[in-house]
Amino acid sequence: MTTWEYATVPLIVHATKQILDQWGEDGWELVQVLSGPENNLVAYLKRPKEN
């Protein structure tokens, strides 16, 4: 059974692609983007946990 680790990442509007590309290169998969405090965007990511 796969176990997961999760991360929440604040997104800067003018650098969203670069931020997500960097996390993707590190093996993270984007799950969802929601509005956080003060209408800032927050990305929720997951990747398989290394056992």
Rank of each mutant, 00 (worst) to 15 (best):
I19F: 07
Q32P: 01
E5W: 13
A43R: 01
A15P: 02
T8G: 10
E38I: 00
K49R: 15
P10C: 07
L20Y: 05
V13I: 04
T16F: 00
W23V: 03
T8S: 09
N40A: 04
L20T: 01
L20K: 03
T2L: 14
L20R: 00
G27R: 06
V9T: 04
Y6K: 01
S35Y: 11
Y44R: 03
V9F: 03
Y44F: 09
E25G: 09
K46P: 05
Y44I: 04
G27H: 13
A7S: 10
A15V: 07
N40M: 08
T8W: 02
L20H: 01
L30Q: 06
A43G: 04
N51T: 14
W4M: 09
P10K: 05
T3H: 12
P37M: 08
I12T: 10
G24T: 02
V42F: 05
V33D: 02
P37C: 10
M1N: 14
S35R: 13
D21N: 14
W23F: 10
P37H: 11
L11H: 05
A43P: 02
G27K: 06
R47M: 03
I12M: 13
Y6M: 06
V31I: 12
P48L: 07
V42I: 12
P10W: 05
L45H: 02
L11P: 04
Q18D: 15
L20V: 03
P37N: 09
P48G: 13
V31F: 03
K17P: 08
A15D: 04
V31C: 07
A43W: 00
L20D: 02
N40V: 07
E29V: 13
L34R: 09
T16C: 02
T3K: 06
E25L: 14
Q32V: 03
N40K: 10
Q22N: 11
